[in-house]
């Protein structure tokens, strides 16, 4: 092959590979980005009904119901509440009154059917999404006067 042809072959292969990679990534991105909604957004019908998303907030006190491996609990951002239905074992750090993030779909009856419940592995940690939901909920309801700042690393036990 002449050097000029070789150069073309190279550039062609490169462009092809790059194009494929970009197409793949964009395609995967589009279908796999998981958006996040707060209970308030869900109640005001901003959340999609045909695709999975994440909901975050705090598990309402005394809202957990069990029936074998099926659980139901209420996620609240202090302004609004959404019932979550989940079949499976909850993570170790799942607790009433603590932050939680669940991933799944919204049913026609307004119950969020989760296929994944996340509570991260640090007792002092609130998932950022849950924290965000609480903050937004507070803005909506106006009942919470203070946004509090957690301690720096040395302030927690």
């Amino acid at each position: 092959m002449k050097p000029r042809h070789r150069r073309f072959a190279w550039i062609g292969t490169g462009v092809l590979a790059l194009g494929t990679a970009v197409a793949l990534v964009l395609n995967a991105f589009n279908s796999n980005l998981v958006f996040f909604f707060t209970p308030t957004q869900i109640v005001s019908r901003e959340a999609p009904v045909d695709r999975a998303f994440r909901i975050g907030g705090m598990v309402e006190e005394r809202s957990l119901q069990r029936e074998d491996t099926r659980v139901r609990f209420v996620v609240t951002d202090t302004a609004n509440r959404v019932t979550v239905d989940y079949v499976g074992i909850l993570p170790d750090l799942f607790k009433e009154g603590r932050g939680v993030v669940a991933q799944g779909r919204l049913g026609a009856d307004g119950v969020f059917v989760a296929d994944q419940v996340l509570a991260k592995h640090d007792e002092n940690y609130m998932p950022p999404e849950a924290a965000e939901a609480m903050k937004k909920g507070a803005e909506v309801s106006g009942s919470l006067s203070k946004t509090l700042r957690a301690p720096a690393a040395n302030g927690s036990p």
């Binding site: 924290a131 609480m134 903050k135 006067s145 946004t147 509090l148």
Partner: peptide
């Protein structure tokens, strides 16, 4: 962005 800004649901 501070991921630790958390309001308390207990206030009020």
């Amino acid at each position: 962005r501070d991921p630790r800004e958390v309001p308390s649901p207990l206030v009020g």
